[in-house]
């Protein structure tokens, strides 16, 4: 059977891993390549690197980091942050990235999704969506959750899928950093509505939260950062608990 995936996310700034509470207060949590290698040894199924400041600061992507990671680790990884055009994606693909994650650039220019899917295949294109609930509606936000858009979250995800997104990385900004659990209601709705894999993000605080998100929403993967970086949840323990709950996982 196809396994549910556990994905540590490494937020990177200036070549170092950081993770902020609700994306604001940044803390240094180590060397991304060393962390990546450790996670691959622990049984992480995949890794995501996001340059969380790239959109605001218009920074170009981290080709050297991608090469260093690709040389060291033997599991797939996604890179996101500051990818605005085909040439950015091409450089990252050639540096060894398996997928790229696009957020603001896709909202501002949805045709970019079509172009990327046509050039590199849908499997290469992850659309990251930051969502926040405003007056009962789930609204897409940009710039690390700071800037609301006109788009409703589910509408945008369905548009992204139809344009050629191969996977959705959905982060609830209301839950992110709270350690109170994933946004299972929204995740369930989205996962039922699309035919591409969905990665749940935002709110992981305990092993039980991962059990809940897979049992209640049937998403394909769950992503977290600080609980892994600070050793609050160890991936082997997490996967053993998931297996005890009859959730299909890869044990190493």
């Amino acid at each position: 059977m196809l396994s549910k995936r556990i994905i540590p996310c490494l937020d990177v700034k200036d070549g170092r891993t950081v993770k902020g509470v609700n994306f604001v207060d940044l803390r240094d949590a180590g060397d991304p390549v060393e962390l990546a290698w450790n996670y691959s040894q622990q049984g992480a199924d995949e890794l995501v690197f996001l340059d969380i400041t790239a959109t605001v600061e218009r920074r170009k992507t981290m080709v050297e980091l991608v090469k260093a990671v690709a040389r060291q680790i033997n599991i797939p990884f996604t890179i996101g942050g500051g990818i605005n055009e085909i040439a950015d994606a091409d450089a990252l693909l050639n540096a060894g990235a398996d997928k790229i994650s696009i957020n603001s650039a896709a909202v501002r220019n949805p045709a970019l999704i079509d172009q990327l899917a046509k050039a590199f295949g849908v499997q290469f294109v992850v659309i990251a969506v930051d969502t926040r609930n405003i007056d009962g509606k789930n609204i897409v936000h940009l710039n690390g959750g700071r800037l609301p858009t006109e788009k409703e979250t589910l509408d945008w995800i369905l548009e992204a899928e139809s344009r050629g997104a191969g996977e959705i990385l959905l982060t609830s900004m209301d839950h992110d950093g709270t350690k109170a659990g994933f946004d299972n209601a929204l995740l369930k709705t989205v996962n039922h509505a699309v035919h591409i894999p969905v990665i749940a993000s935002g709110g992981a605080g305990s092993v039980q939260h991962f059990v809940d998100v897979f049992e209640k929403t049937n998403v394909d993967a769950a992503l977290a950062a600080s609980v892994f970086h600070y050793g609050e949840i160890l991936i082997p323990d997490l996967k053993n608990t998931l297996k005890e709950n009859n959730i299909e996982v890869r044990l190493v």
Binding site: M1, L2, S3, R5, D45, V122, Q123, G166, E167, H192, V194, H195, I196, P197, D220, A221, R250
Partner: peptide
């Protein structure tokens, strides 16, 4: 074959 139960592409770790 696309279906509600099975997403395509088949993405991830399988046995």
């Amino acid at each position: 074959k696309d279906s509600a139960e099975f997403k395509v592409p088949h993405t991830g770790w399988n046995q």
